[in-house]
Design a protein around this nucleic acid. Structure first.
Lengths: 354, 354
DNA sequence: TGTTAGCAGTCAATTGTAATGAGTGCCAAT
DNA sequence: ATTGGCACTCATTACAATTGACTGCTAACA
């Protein structure tokens, strides 16, 4: 399968890595075993691997070469090798797409055929599913409401100078905004304004400029307030687009409590997480490993992302956050399968909403 | 200040602890120093404390008594003492209400005078505030919607047999439910049903039984569906009442990664957290220490709770989760101050909503 | 009688030393 | 080019000795 060359954010300081078959096999063996055992891998166990039919001594001399090329590193002189971020990168770039275990495939299929309810609930549960399936922390970013149009808008009178503006969007989201007014309004004016607001906004998109009534009547005033509240507020709705599941998995991935601390700290900043995922996708990548994404606190982590599309346009994403020695094959397969299911569901939604 | 005796969930196996002044002072010194240093406290440093004017030898003999009474324990023979859960309990029960540092008081006041927006946003930010202030994980549970009444209800037609039922509640919450119908409906029927639903439901509380139209017309059918969707769905809205802030603080409170793992695992189950807090309050307590709450995974933790009232009835709560050697004084003060502010805000909301 | 100084005893933590063994780099033989 | 052999490195483990922070006990004391 053809694949883009690995363009990481910082321009690669070394030539594009091309390894001969044997080096590649050795690197592969080291990565696989390290992912499995979390221990440095020695020449002996690599040579024992049946896909590398040479002696430990030969493996060793290849390993020094791989180390020179920045693919492997030694924790200390008399230890085996572990992959560098660059080594993982090579591994991932040359990984052929894996397939999930039947049981996991079944679980995902089962989930999407039975899950009901509002989109937010589906996304939240999807995040939990993905995390449960992979043992990594999962991030699900739902579609933005930016392109949605208004299906319904109304103003509800709460009395005591307080009103609530409610908008229903074409993607099924509901936006609300409570407003305290400066002066009394009559219930009749409110309901009249509600009708006018409905007429004014239905069909408009949230970022669209609306021709507001300029009259100085109380009703017109209310309509202006209501429209202003709904149309400027899209950012707030977007705050509810991010679902992080299985944060506790981080503590299971690392032994060093310091690492857990810093990673959890990042996870609490949802905006950072979303930005990170978007950055990765903007580079055309589906994996960012260790130092590749610029976040110091996440240098022990790798992130796997898969876009969720609507009409071929990226509208959301699912991601997995784990240690750099995560099981990329499984993580990629799970993320892709789930993103595909989400894409299907969102597109069918779009379709049925006309 | 009078205080209920400590009735923990399991009936106390020992007599209610009453300590003479000197023992109490020694226990107090041990707890305070242990909270400060996280180390076992020896007789020497207790005797150095100016509120205990006796020699280390005397302190020692008192300490063996305190150990016999289950207030202190020794990690090993030649170490100092650390408080047991029972020791912390005595400490907390005899703690006079502390006052926050002026800077913190100012921050809370500042926060509540400037925070704007929907209740959910306020609660979420409150949780973040509390966690930032105390360095512990915070839990904020908002008021249930059970007693709210319907202010507005409408049905929005999405075409293709799909409708969205939206209800606005008297507490400002908005409930929505997407429904896929079995057969086509005309837009006119939908808007007629919307009007009828509004008339039918406004003023009703969510758990109230509604007299539904029994006619077999399409409109009546829609009204029944809409009413059913809104009235049965209160549990879903309640799912959004819980806001947990600063989970990463857990990792900063413990060195043992195992502890972090199990506590984070609990925190992911919001229902468990809410139940735990409710249990504590139902016992008339404001603190649960270590083994007092029945959760094995939280045996290294203490929970501080403060109710949030509306009209004198408990409607929500704020809580702090930290290690058993948390700073109870500060945590209690912060929780109470914040819960008071929340109570004020919610009651003023109630008032202005009539 | 309650308090205290003194002292021997305990034990975690630290330091030092040695043995172990996994794994390397290098080199000469194949 | 590959490999077996070998000397070397160094984290890890084990063990013993030392240190020092405490204690519990007891005898003297107010």
């Amino acid at each position: 399968m053809a694949r883009k060359p690995a363009n990481v954010s910082t321009p690669a300081p070394r030539p594009a890595p091309v390894l001969d078959a044997r080096k590649a096999a050795i690197l592969d063996a080291v990565v696989n075993e390290h992912i499995d055992t979390a221990q440095p891998v020695g020449s002996g166990s690599v040579a024992a691997n049946h896909s590398v039919a040479v002696s430990p001594a030969t493996v060793r001399s290849e390993m020094v070469a791989l180390e020179r090329e920045g693919m492997l590193t030694q924790p200390h002189t008399s230890a085996g090798r572990i992959p560098t971020d660059r080594g993982y990168r090579y591994f991932v770039d040359h990984l052929q797409r894996g397939v999930l275990q039947p049981a996991q495939q079944a679980e995902i299929g089962q989930f999407f055929s039975s899950v009901r309810g509002e989109l937010e609930d589906v996304l939240e549960q999807t995040s939990a599913l993905l995390s449960r399936l992979t043992k990594y922390t999962s991030v699900v970013v739902g579609p933005s409401h930016a392109r949605a149009t208004v299906r319904s808008a109304q103003i509800v009178d709460f009395g005591a100078r307080r009103i609530l503006v409610v908008g229903v969007l074409s993607d099924g989201a509901v936006e609300k905004r409570t407003i305290d007014l400066d002066e009394d309004v009559s219930p009749l004016d409110v309901s009249e304004a509600s009708v006018q607001l409905q007429a004014l906004l239905v069909g408009a998109s949230l970022d669209q400029r609306i021709e507001l009534p300029s009259r100085q009547t109380a009703v017109a005033q209310l309509v202006r307030i209501g429209a202003g509240a709904l149309m400027t507020g899209s950012t707030s709705v977007d705050g509810d687009r991010v679902f992080i599941g299985g944060s506790s998995k981080i503590a299971e991935s690392f032994d060093a409590v310091d690492t857990v601390r810093s990673v959890l700290g990042i996870l609490e900043q949802e905006l950072v997480v979303v930005t990170l995922m978007q950055d990765i996708m903007d580079q055309g990548l589906s994996v960012a490993i260790g130092s590749e994404h610029g976040y110091q606190s996440l240098s022990a982590c790798a992130v796997v992302v898969a876009p969720v599309n609507i009409d071929g346009v990226q509208a959301g994403a699912v991601g997995l956050l784990g240690p750099t020695r995560m099981n990329y094959r499984e993580a990629l397969a799970a993320a892709h399968m789930v993103s595909q299911h989400l894409t299907d569901r969102l597109e069918s939604n779009e379709a049925s909403r006309g």
